[in-house]
Amino acid sequence: MTYQDDLSAITADDLRGFFVGWPSPPTPAQHLAALRGSHRVVVARAGSGRVAGFVNAIGDGVLTAFVPWLEVLPEHQGQGIGGELVRRILTQLDDVYSVDLVCDAELRPYYERLGLTAVQGMGLRNRTVLG
């Protein structure tokens, strides 16, 4: 597995197969645009060159960042790729004051093992935007 933060060679077709189980997943074109618009991105590529996973961070570039997505293709899960992606994005963000991430309750232990701490938050999901 190789890891990169350069998206110049990534195409929308490289991003097929992600967001399994989402009720209205982004299209590959939306996915690529979101990654390109992010403050920081790390992509994992399998030996075949296929994108196997990614993580991104958005933020002000000074004090705060938010990690909205961590995804690993189902056939590559359980191999430590997600953890390595999180470690790499956090290293890129080690100069900001706060890094926040929202996850479902069952994922809290996973992120706690990676050094994150549970905090309370609020959110709004406009599900009509995707799909």
Rank of each mutant, 00 (worst) to 15 (best):
S24H: 14
P25D: 08
P26M: 07
T27V: 05
T27E: 01
T27F: 04
T27R: 07
P28L: 04
P28I: 02
P28H: 01
A29C: 03
A29P: 01
A29F: 01
Q30V: 11
Q30F: 06
H31G: 02
H31P: 02
H31M: 08
L32N: 00
L32V: 10
L32F: 02
L32I: 04
L32H: 03
L32P: 01
A33C: 13
A33W: 05
A34L: 07
A34F: 03
L35M: 12
G37R: 03
S38P: 04
H39C: 02
H39N: 08
H39M: 13
H39F: 15
R40N: 09
R40Q: 15
R40H: 15
V41E: 01
V41D: 00
V42D: 00
V42K: 00
V42T: 01
V43L: 05
V43H: 00
V43C: 01
V43A: 00
A44N: 00
A44Y: 01
R45T: 09
G47A: 07
G47P: 11
G47S: 10
G49K: 06
G49E: 11
V51W: 02
V51N: 00
A52V: 02
A52L: 08
G53M: 10
G53S: 12
G53R: 11
F54Q: 00
N56H: 09
I58K: 05
G59I: 02
G59P: 03
G59A: 08
D60L: 06
D60A: 14
D60Q: 14
D60I: 08
G61V: 08
L63V: 09
L63E: 04
L63N: 11
T64I: 06
T64D: 12
A65W: 13
A65H: 13
F66N: 13
P68K: 12
W69Y: 15
L70F: 11
L70E: 02
L70N: 07
E71F: 14
E71C: 15
E71V: 14
V72Q: 03
V72L: 14
L73P: 02
P74E: 07
E75F: 09
E75W: 12
E75D: 10
E75N: 09
Q77Y: 14
Q77W: 13
G78W: 14
G78A: 11
G78L: 12
Q79P: 08
G80N: 14
G80L: 05
G80K: 15
I81Y: 01
G82S: 15
G83K: 05
G83V: 03
E84V: 08
E84P: 11
V86F: 13
V86S: 09
V86K: 01
R87T: 06
R87H: 14
R88D: 05
I89H: 07
I89A: 09
T91A: 15
T91V: 05
Q92K: 12
L93Q: 06
L93K: 11
D94M: 07
D94R: 12
D95I: 06
V96N: 06
V96T: 12
V96F: 09
V96M: 12
Y97T: 14
Y97D: 07
Y97E: 12
S98K: 11
S98W: 15
V99D: 10
V99L: 13
